[in-house]
Write a protein that binds this DNA or RNA. Structure first.
Length: 586
DNA sequence: GCCGTTTTCGGCCCGACTGTTTTCAGTCG
């Protein structure tokens, strides 16, 4: 078993233990161990065989044994026993809001309820309200929760959440009682997929702000409403939570609610190590009363809180507990890329294949946006579903684009289209075009669009092979995933990144909000190997140029700076970089 | 289940909200 699989088993064990009613700290030990395994940089099998598991934080004697069993035998008796003892329907019930392990256990023990369907029926029959600890309201809420889960997905693309959050935030900004406000949570951290929208405001009149918020247009219903906090369900199916705090508390609340949870635990622990206490209300010198204002360490902004804890500032995108705190202790974090650093996108489509606009119109639109260049890289012939081009049509398109560029030059414009192709990596690893054709193109992207179900070894060797081709500049959407729709195909990131490092091949950060592929979690490794990134829109329409902004946000999560991203370069420098690999490999 | 210069037991981040109770447990983030 590899580390992802081991981490998944450990996470599942934690869920099963919760349902069993085990000590919550024992449960957490499994969650922590899963995270440690997932984020370790060495191959797990090596650490196991060298018996160095115990050196890792959070892995003691018991977990060493279990992980070793998983890695060496591919299974774990303890896990199988737990699974056998827990009806799978109970796990599904955890997804219903308001139902946690204790209530689910009670439902199972008292009424023998083992599935969501049985639970729904029991609610309708009025059997739940009579149980100790349950009531009419809980029964109704469970039914509503089951219904809502069927009607709406509970996870949302950031591209759906951002435009939903913006009007709410704007409304808060305009309210006279609101002093400061911001998004928080996973949205502020710019996660690719979010659960709900977190908003934070400071005010002297919290109840009024809460009331104002719950009466905004676009609210389907109000889930909860208190003095300082409200949750609403928006018409698009996304939940939004608002918390209102005093302005003195605001920076602490913003830090706390931006998270992530794991990052917060590290920060709190750091405060404790300095004889301080950090929570959403403040940073306090140690004392019996944790919210005693006399013990408060004054901070007006998040920046000041980091400073008081002996840290350089950590941008929200990096607050994921992937080593940011340890580094911020030693030195300023890298200056992350800004979306305005981007000069164009190298991977885009036109009506020649499955795009919606013609090259001349695209050139005009992208020039007006203030970009410097735009690659036209239509599909190759094997992508027949996308109207892929054969060699003859590619050469025809080359002529058209050259003419457009000549016209641009005649008008005195510096904007240029780049010629290119998104060439398919075929099932057997060959490319869909011959090298002599690829050599005629400004920019070549190689991507997988077929045979998604091959083994990890086969897919990896297709990608490594493509990287070894001297004419391929970029590997496109590395894993083929479609967020919330399609799983990535199996491939070995490390091996592919290493091959790119060796050959001078760039890796795409496909900025389509359905893809964001390669995943941000792999960019620090790629960066450490000197592999460059191209943030590409994979645009099929004008509007997709806006993906540059979203893509830059994901690149920031991957710790990327302007220097790591090739399409921050001006056109002449980009052209010389595009020539570098071809020169090196000939 | 993990951890430890206050170390082999007794902690483990912590507060708001809801619904059920009648002082609090469970859930959530």
């Amino acid at each position: 078993m590899d580390k992802d699989q081991v981490a998944e088993v450990l996470t599942n064990i934690a869920v099963l233990l919760e349902l069993k009613g085990e000590n919550p700290f024992k449960t957490r030990a499994y969650v922590n161990a899963a995270r440690t395994i997932e984020t370790m940089s060495e191959p797990l099998a090596m650490v196991v065989s060298e018996q160095r598991l115990g050196e890792m934080k959070g892995i003691g004697e018991a977990l060493q044994k279990k992980i070793t069993e998983l890695v060496t035998t591919g299974g774990l008796a303890y896990y199988e026993e737990l699974k056998a003892a827990t009806p799978p329907g109970l796990v599904a019930m955890l997804d219903i809001p308001g139902l946690g392990p204790k209530k689910i256990k009670a439902l199972h023990d008292e009424l023998g309820i083992e599935t969501v369907e049985l639970l729904e029926q029991a609610c309708k029959d009025g059997k739940i309200a009579g149980l100790k600890g349950f009531g009419e309201k809980t029964q109704t809420n469970i039914l509503e929760g089951i219904h809502r889960r069927r009607t709406y997905a509970s996870r949302h693309l950031i591209s759906d959440a951002l435009p939903t959050a913006e009007p709410l935030l704007e409304a808060l900004r305009l309210h006279p009682d609101v002093i400061r406000c911001s998004t928080a949570g996973s949205l502020r951290r710019h996660r690719e997929v979010i659960g709900d929208i977190d908003l934070l405001a400071s005010s002297k009149q919290p109840a009024e702000v809460i009331d104002y918020f719950t009466h905004q247009p676009g609210i389907f219903n109000v889930i909860a409403k208190g003095e300082t906090k409200a949750s609403v369900l928006l018409e698009g199916g996304i939940q939004a939570d608002l918390r209102v705090v005093s302005d003195a508390e605001y920076p602490f609340a913003l830090l706390y609610f931006t998270g992530s949870k794991e990052h917060n635990i590290v920060m709190r622990q750091r405060a404790i190590d300095r004889d301080l206490r950090l929570n959403e209300y403040g940073l306090f010198r140690s004392g019996a009363e944790t919210r005693d204002p006399k013990l408060l360490v004054n901070c007006r902004t998040e920046e000041e809180i980091f400073e008081k804890l002996g840290l350089h500032y950590i941008p929200p995108e990096l607050r994921e507990d992937t080593g940011e705190v340890a580094l911020a202790e030693k030195e300023p974090l890298p200056r992350l890329i800004e979306w305005t650093d981007l000069k164009g996108s190298l991977h885009n489509h036109s009506t020649w294949s499955d795009g919606h606009q013609q090259p001349a119109d695209i050139a005009r639109a992208m020039r007006e946006l203030g970009l410097a260049y735009w690659g036209i890289t239509d599909h190759s012939k094997s992508s027949f579903q996308a109207n892929g081009l054969d060699a003859a049509r590619v050469r025809q398109q080359l002529k058209e684009i050259r003419q457009i560029n000549e016209d641009l030059a005649a008008e005195g414009s510096d904007f240029r289209l780049l010629t290119g192709a998104e060439v398919d990596i075929l099932k057997d690893g060959r490319l869909d075009f011959e090298d002599d054709l690829l050599a005629e193109l400004d920019v070549v992207i190689a991507s997988i669009h077929q045979s998604f179900n091959q083994s990890e070894e086969e897919t990896t060797s297709r990608l490594v092979g493509a990287a070894r081709n001297p004419y391929v500049h970029i590997l496109g959407h590395l894993t083929g995933r479609l967020l919330l729709e399609r799983e990535p195909y199996k491939m070995d990131h490390r091996a592919v990144i290493d091959a790119c490092a060796e050959t001078g091949t760039w890796i795409e950060l496909n900025a389509s909000p359905l893809r964001f592929d390669m995943d941000w979690r792999w960019w620090p490794y790629a960066r450490s190997k000197g592999v460059k990134c191209a943030i590409n829109c994979d645009a099929h329409r004008f509007e997709h140029a806006g993906f540059l902004r979203l893509g830059a946000g994901i690149a920031r999560k991957g710790w990327l700076t302007r220097e790591d991203v090739v399409n921050t370069l001006p056109l002449d420098k980009l052209r010389s970089e595009l020539g570098r690999k071809r020169a090196k490999m000939q």
